[in-house]
């Protein structure tokens, strides 16, 4: 399923979580490679936040297992190696910035005060400011300082760029990338802004309806897919060429006489097709738009492709 030479940060088998009668995640199997930046994408309600909560031990799975560097999420070992920035970036509003860093120092054995302070200072944030009075961007910086002060091996970021203005977005992402450059931290980041993920991630995990729809190395996934445009085949009901394996079709649209299709694998033979290798954004959009046609093996063998 996965390249055995790449160490694994997260591994899920049969993972499921049910809230009352609704399954937020169901029967998920995937691996997140260590030392890579993995983008976690999917529509709202796809189970992204649930996955983060399972990976931090804030929730227990209903079925299956998830391990963090081989340890149980939420265990002492897993907690020491993981930092999590939840979607709403929770901080104590009545603490000062100094208190907030002290919080990190008091609650973590292996704490890098200098690194945390450097991040805060680089943002020109006075240490005696109350968290509640900070701007969104400043609060994000402080939250990242607490996360990086932990010196984590795995950094989980749930929609870290939401609600930030474009400048602060670049700044926050720059901070994360700097940490990765310096320490080789494994990052799992969820975001709605697909174009921003493109220049950032090595690996992608796409969730939809609580299941894994796509999982693999970005470059390989892009190479494994092709988008072709040409004359729709009038003899077939769906306009696709007769010889094409329908199981490989991610998305196909017929507009008038023109067919545009997105398939996994190679384009149909013949020189009357204009073929292109998709960008990550195009690939993700195609999967997000498509119904659940490609069965789950698409997701499963993604990493092995």
């Amino acid at each position: 399923m996965t390249d055995p030479t790449v160490p694994t940060a997260l591994r899920a088998t049969g993972l499921g979580r049910r809230f009352r009668s609704r399954w937020a995640l169901r029967d998920c199997a995937f691996t997140v490679p260590a030392g890579k930046i993995t983008a976690l994408v999917g529509p709202n309600g796809a189970g992204k936040s649930t996955l983060f909560h399972l990976a931090t031990g804030l929730l227990h799975p209903t079925t299956g297992e998830l391990s963090v560097f081989g340890a149980t999420p939420g265990s002492d070992e897993a907690r020491a190696r993981t930092a999590f920035l939840a979607q709403d970036k929770p901080l104590y509003p009545r603490f000062t910035v100094g208190d907030t860093l002290r919080f990190g120092r008091e609650l973590n054995d292996d704490w890098d005060q200098a690194a945390a302070e450097r991040i805060v200072r680089a943002g020109d944030i006075p240490f005696d400011t109350r968290i509640g009075t900070l701007s969104q961007g400043q609060a994000t910086r402080v939250a990242l300082a607490v996360a990086f002060g932990k010196r984590p091996e795995l950094l989980l970021l749930d929609e870290p760029l939401a609600d930030l203005d474009p400048l602060v977005r670049i700044e926050a992402m720059g901070l994360v990338m700097e940490e990765v450059a310096e320490r080789g931290t494994t990052v799992v980041i969820s975001s709605h802004i697909l174009s921003e993920l493109e220049s950032v991630c090595d690996h992608v995990l796409l969730l939809k309806h609580g299941g894994v729809r796509l999982d693999g190395d970005v470059q390989r996934l892009c190479e494994d897919h092709v988008r072709f445009t040409g004359l729709a085949d009038a003899s077939t009901g769906d306009g696709l060429p007769a010889g094409l394996d329908r199981g490989t079709v991610v998305e196909a649209t017929v507009t008038g006489r023109q067919l545009t299709a997105f398939v996994r694998g190679t384009a149909p033979t013949g020189d009357h097709w204009i073929t292109e290798t998709p960008s990550l954004e195009e690939l993700l959009l195609a999967y997000l738009r498509s119904d659940d046609r490609p069965t789950e093996d698409t997701g499963r063998d993604g990493a092995a492709a």
């Binding site: 909560h53 931090t56 804030l58 907690r79 930092a83 939840a86 929770p90 973590n108 054995d109």
Partner: peptide, 10 residues
């Protein structure tokens, strides 16, 4: 949501 912050520390 601060419980998420507190419970993911050491």
């Amino acid at each position: 949501g601060t419980w998420k912050l507190a419970l993911t520390q050491g």
